Amino acid sequence: MAVPVRASEAILGSARPWVLLAFRIVVTVLFLLHPASALGLLDGSAPAAPMIAISAVEIVCVLLVAVGLYTRVAAFLLSGMMAFAFFVIHTSAGWNWIDNGGEPAALYCWVFLLLVVLGPGPLSLDRRRLGD
């Protein structure tokens, strides 16, 4: 015997693909500020040479996440990059996430790991590419 579905669960279930799409887009817009800043696009400063390559990878990967193309791979790379940034760069200034500036890196690490697990959802180019 089937258990009746509550109306709120049905409504939330139908909104899930759209919320996941909005989540991917909002995360992309917010995250893009970081490589743009590292490249000096926000303040006109000259970027350090290693930051050019790192920022280019971040920009390409996060744009893939936004459109939902190779999402799990791109999100995995971004999650790893953010974990590296937190543990190697930020913790050298101490373990307090607020004081060492590592809070955004830690948060983005988990956000992208969540997208690795959840995938891009039905409103994505991956869905079209894989024919699901």
Rank of each mutant, 00 (worst) to 15 (best):
T28W: 12
L114V: 12
W110Y: 14
Y108A: 00
W97K: 14
A7E: 03
F31K: 02
R24W: 04
A10F: 09
M81T: 05
R16C: 02
A36N: 05
L20R: 12
I52W: 09
G40I: 08
G119V: 04
L12V: 07
L114T: 15
R72P: 01
L107M: 15
F112G: 01
A49M: 13
A7N: 05
F87L: 15
H34S: 06
I59T: 14
V5Y: 07
L118D: 01
V26H: 08
L41R: 02
F31D: 00
L32M: 14
L42M: 12
P120D: 02
L77D: 01
S92Y: 13
V111K: 02
G131Q: 10
M51C: 06
R129I: 11
L21Y: 04
L115V: 08
E9W: 08
I59S: 05
V62S: 02
R129A: 14
S8V: 15
V65Y: 07
L30I: 12
I59L: 12
D132V: 13
L32I: 08
T71W: 07
W95Y: 15
H90K: 13
V67W: 05
L12T: 08
A56V: 12
V3L: 13
G101F: 09
H90P: 01
A75R: 06
F76G: 04
A38S: 12
R16W: 07
A106P: 01
A105S: 10
V19F: 06
P47G: 06
S124T: 04
A7P: 00
V116F: 05
V73P: 00
A56M: 10
I52D: 02
G80C: 00
N100L: 12
F31S: 01
F87E: 03
V111S: 00
F87V: 14
L30T: 10
I89C: 07
D99Y: 11
L115W: 08
L21R: 08
V5W: 08
V3G: 04
A83M: 10
V65W: 08
G121N: 02
L30W: 11
A2I: 15
L115F: 11
A53R: 11
A46P: 00
V116E: 00
F31V: 02
C109T: 07
S14F: 10
S124W: 03
R129F: 14
V57A: 15
I52E: 03
